[in-house]
Design a protein around this nucleic acid. Structure first.
Lengths: 399, 399
DNA sequence: AGCTTAGAGTTCACTAGTTGGACATAGGCG
DNA sequence: CGCCTATGTCCAACTAGTGAACTCTAAGCT
């Protein structure tokens, strides 16, 4: 860090290389590390010793079969990461370790009208409870990922106006949570985190370019470009909900007319069914009814799918991702909504862009965002936090 | 390269660091290099000597004022790059050096119906002529960037079907030009190269995320994301011409209806004016007439602008670039087209995405693509080709 | 003019860190 | 039981960057 092109930076890079290799593979013998990283066996030997002394890595004295291979793995308590996700109606928290394992996960209902301070208090309590339950060491927290359902200003970390959590507008949730927990907190909006979650644990594994479409009370998209979340210079990339489908369509809350949201989001779609199906309908209920065969709900969901498909088609023409993952409650509808989406994409996207596209339902359901928050904490940590000695007390100074 | 984490790779990285610093700044003294790269003065001294011996860098013995500063700059003959651009009606070639200077540039008309082989022959001749004219050494060619007006398959380098150069479909222009010139050739389509050109030399300087909209016989966009061209996994990102504006609009050549292209591209727009302005109208003429006050042409151009603005609004909602640059003939219309674009963007994009957006005309006109091809060659070269000894005969082997 | 000063570039001894090869170890296999 | 093979460790060699001392030049001051 201090000296960008020096040997110590090289050494550091090699440390990270080894840590990353071990993380990706779960556990490796030193010889395997040497092969996959391209480093020499001697170097690996030194590095492993250093990491072991520092406590970031564990060496299980002998592996199962073989001659005398010692398998190296990230020590379970080398560091933990926490994901916190504020949704429309509930708060979710997950705790994971550096090996991408989820140790504990819990959600609880959240009062929509609560203030940011109250919400964050609740989050802090839930985090503490989970830490206690899993028995991990608070000092080992490497970072926290935080998801909020609204636009975050990249520079300042300020939450923009959000219809979902009205009491939160203008707050800086990352800073406040950081103050409460005393560890680095990284925020992002729920669509981006959903994308990250599905990318790392769900339907997006193995893909480099992905769009995660979340349909809930609004419609948003999280874009992953070349394996990284793309937020745009202003932090508002992915606003697929407000692309114009019909210039003379219904007026949208954003002030324009005929936005995708006015055809697909819960707050615009549910009223269509209220006269026939009662007023306290939720999207979840509509999906359930549709699966049970209710023709009205089926029709509405298919129409929503078609409109989303139009939006996705535009997205494909512009970005050409290799996969689109549908999240939110609507994803539960399965083919009832995916079929119309695919049909619409096939009709409106140029063939070469649509050809290698796969449209899949999210594999994580409502967990996508929390897990994405975990993934955010992991990725922001950047393999190097481990080495700073901030977590583990050892590592005798190589200034 | 061979040894990913070794000292020699570190050394190489430092060489590249220095080369890049010099390239970006034009010329620097050693002390300045040390400051900008973070390397120590001693290291810089060694590296500069090595580069000087290798011929990649020139040291002008004494700078103008000051004590005894020796300014370091890339040696003019360290390497040259060539840009070749096939347009709808002409072929352009440019020669530049590593210092981002354009040494020579020339264009000549091209027969639309010519075969790929004929076109490439012409290109080869023109390149040879320019090499002769500038007196550079053929052996110093570090790379060639090639622009073609059609979709390129990323994997194979095959040119997809293009309405502009019908004789070229299915050829692999990069390979063929490589065979003719004997140096690495990198292809891309004209919109991407236009984006790159404007990014490096034109209206996009200093910006990291940019969309270049090219309106000609079709409508395409080149996307620059985080400073790099974004092509998408399938290589067809940026097809803004085929996003749907009106589901029941005119049938487009792509098979869909109401694509942006059907409202904005020359082949669809010019017929509107043929009854009143004659049949052999070109976009260029329309723009000229509009500037001279012709109300019909003004109206058509404004309409085109409005439609482009709708497309750009969608693009902004999805990608949120900080700048949109308009290229192609249409850009010559200036405010006549930019005004309606901005108005449309303001109307259809969500405010937070539109707020920090600037919409500018391209600064390079028809040269954007060739210059982009130069830039492509430069960027693909990746600062390291210089060090391989393939160009300059010196550099006494470090394995 | 002469002295001082300050920044530029070079040299040198030192140090960090990787590598190849030699060596010890331990299970599988004949 | 001994050979073989692959693993992990140790050591000497080597590569490359760094700080400090040194030289050099021109500008500024007296």
């Amino acid at each position: 860090m201090e000296t960008p092109g020096s040997q110590s930076s090289l050494h550091r890079a090699n440390l990270e290389r080894v840590v990353r290799a071990v993380r990706l593979a779960g556990s490796l013998t030193q010889a395997e590390i040497a092969r996959t990283t391209g480093l020499s066996a001697a170097t690996v030997s030194n590095i492993v010793r250093e990491l072991k002394d520092g406590g970031t890595v564990e060496v299980t004295p002998t592996s199962a079969g073989g001659r005398r291979a010692r398998s190296v793995s990230l020590s379970g308590d080398a560091g933990i990461v926490i994901g916190v996700d504020f949704g429309h109606t509930h708060l979710r928290v997950a705790i994971g370790n550096l090996a991408h394992q989820v140790l504990a996960e819990e959600s609880e209902p959240l009062d929509v009208d609560a203030s940011a301070a109250q919400g964050l208090d609740r989050a802090e309590q839930l985090v503490s409870r989970l830490i206690l339950a899993t028995g991990v060491d608070r000092a080992k927290i490497a970072g926290v990922g935080l998801g909020v359902p609204g636009p975050i200003d990249v520079e300042s970390g300020t939450l923009g106006s959000t219809a979902i959590l009205p009491g939160w507008t203008g707050t800086k949730p990352a800073e406040e949570l950081r103050a409460r927990l005393g560890v680095p907190v990284h925020v992002d909006n729920d669509a981006n985190l959903g994308a990250l979650g599905e990318l790392v644990w769900g339907s997006g594994r193995g893909v480099k370019d992905l769009a995660y479409i979340k349909v809930a009370s609004g419609v948003g998209a999280g874009l992953v470009i070349s394996g990284r979340i793309y937020r745009g210079p202003g932090g508002t990339a992915g606003e697929i909900g407000h692309i114009t489908l019909d210039e003379s369509g219904p007026v949208c809350r954003c002030g324009n007319r005929g936005c995708l949201e006015t055809f697909a989001a819960a707050r615009y779609v549910l009223p269509l069914l209220q006269s026939s199906h009662g007023t306290d309908l939720t999207m979840e209920a509509v999906v359930r009814l549709a699966r049970d065969g209710d023709p009205g709900c089926r029709r509405v969901i298919a129409d929503v799918g078609r409109h989303i498909g139009s939006g996705v088609a535009n997205l494909c023409n512009l970005l050409n991702p290799s996969r689109v993952v549908l999240g939110g409650d609507l994803a539960e509808a399965g083919e009832l909504v995916l079929g119309p989406i695919r049909e619409s994409v096939g009709r409106y996207a140029i063939p070469s862009a649509a050809r290698q596209l796969s449209v899949l339902p999210g594999a994580l359901g409502g967990r996508a965002e929390v897990l994405g928050a975990l993934a955010l904490a992991l990725s922001e940590m950047g393999d190097s936090t481990l080495l700073d000695g901030t977590l583990s007390a050892a590592t005798p100074a190589f200034t």
